[in-house]
Design a protein around this nucleic acid. Structure first.
Length: 266
DNA sequence: ATGACTACTTTGAGTAGA
């Protein structure tokens, strides 16, 4: 089973890129971020034509998250976090698909720092951490995936010294990220590539992609039972080189099939 | 320190992204 996260940066403006990637990569479940489209403008038909069911949580102009599945019904469990600091911003969607609970999120950027946007980022992060704790404690197989807007370590930034004061790399947000993973979640991409320089975002300025001046900010966090099933994790880097593309690349994991448990018929 | 790109918007210069 292949599960992906992709910040599309405008689901309508980048629709051709999204559809091409879906056709070529054939992910089973996808969480999308930055739809930048109101609820009624989600391109449901085009996505359904490729065989995907979808749920989405739109918002005019900004934010917006969605989940696609071609491996069975999407059983939505929530949209928005418990104690969401600003429910008007569509940043979280969660559903059970094919025996896995999947959370898709778009964490606030937080710049400029300091300031109200940075405070909001930390509040949102705290609400996520609180909710993630209950997901973890459920013992269910869970993936928390999305654009976290955090580079966890220096290995995740092309030029760390330049980003120290930035809301994506500041000590407070890196601390929050490790407070989250400290609950027991596994950073899937880093697990598969422990020492590799591997990015998921390259900005549009100054040929950042050509220079590989990137950031690793899109993550898939796995609960223990899914970590045991993790067989691969990759960035579909080439997508960032396509015409009219997002500044993010898709990131995906491959999970082995669930081992049949004793006494359970398949 | 700024701006370089790009999307979105009661379509245009402003906001936001990272």
């Amino acid at each position: 089973m292949k599960i992906a996260t992709y910040n599309v940066n405008g689901v309508n403006g980048r629709l051709a890129v999204l559809l091409r990637w879906l056709r070529e990569a054939e992910p089973d479940v996808v969480v999308l971020q930055e739809l930048k489209a109101p609820q009624e403008k989600f391109p449901e038909t085009a996505i359904r034509d490729l065989g995907y069911d979808a749920i989405w949580h739109g918002q005019k102009s900004w934010n917006g998250v969605a989940m696609l599945s071609r491996v069975g019904e999407i059983h939505e469990t929530r949209r928005g976090l418990p104690d969401d600091p600003d429910p008007a911003q569509s940043r979280y969607i969660e559903a059970a698909v094919n025996g896995i609970l999947i959370a898709g999120l778009y964490l606030p950027n937080g710049n400029p720092r300091p300031g109200p946007k940075f405070d909001y980022k930390l509040k949102w992060f705290d609400a996520l951490i609180a909710h993630a704790a209950s997901l973890f404690d459920s013992g269910l197989p869970v993936v928390i995936a999305g654009d976290f807007n955090v580079m966890p370590t220096e290995a995740d930034v092309y030029k760390p010294e330049r980003w120290r004061e930035d809301a994506l790399f500041a000590p407070e947000v890196r601390e929050a990220f490790f407070r989250l993973t400290g609950q027991g979640w596994t950073d899937a991409l880093r697990k598969i590539h422990p020492d590799e320089t591997i990015y998921t975002f390259w900005d549009y300025f100054r040929n950042a992609y050509g220079r590989n001046a990137g950031l690793r900010i899109d993550h898939l966090l796995l609960s223990p039972s899914l970590t045991a099933r993790l067989v691969d994790a990759q960035v579909d880097r080439d997508v960032r080189g396509w015409d009219k593309t997002s500044d993010h690349a898709p990131v995906w994991i491959a999970l082995s099939d669930e081992k049949p448990s004793r006494g359970k018929k398949r």
